[in-house]
Amino acid sequence: MSMRSPLGRARGLGSAKSGTQHWWAQRLTAIALVPLTIWFVIAMVAATGSDYTTARAFIGNPVTAVLLVLLIVATFHHAQLGLQVVIEDYVHTKSVEIALLLAIKGAAIVLALAAIFAVLSIAFGGA
């Protein structure tokens, strides 16, 4: 039996049943994404219409490759945190909610990994 009061046990727990970690991670990734996104848009505008060889030279450039990997990690982490809140707010059937949360988080991991693998394989000169 817990000696803590009901208020003490509830304090800091939101609808997601956790404390401030989610909120904080959302802000950290948001701050990281400000410069990364600005760089990304400028780089992609400059790369508009690139042919295969030019695009690979662009992606495989060490600076671009590192920034792309950082962008991918921050983007998918930020996206799955955000989509989680949207699902928690609007989906009120627990089984559907859990299924969607698993799908979103799984998809974020798979897509991020695929994108990072693609960048690294180009950067390391593989086929």
């Binding site: 994108a115 693609a118 180009i122 086929a127």
Partner: peptide, 14 residues
């Protein structure tokens, strides 16, 4: 993000 992932994988594929 699907478009970005597609573009990167396509560039890595051939």
């Amino acid at each position: 993000t699907l478009l970005l992932v597609w573009w990167l994988i396509a560039a890595a594929s051939g």
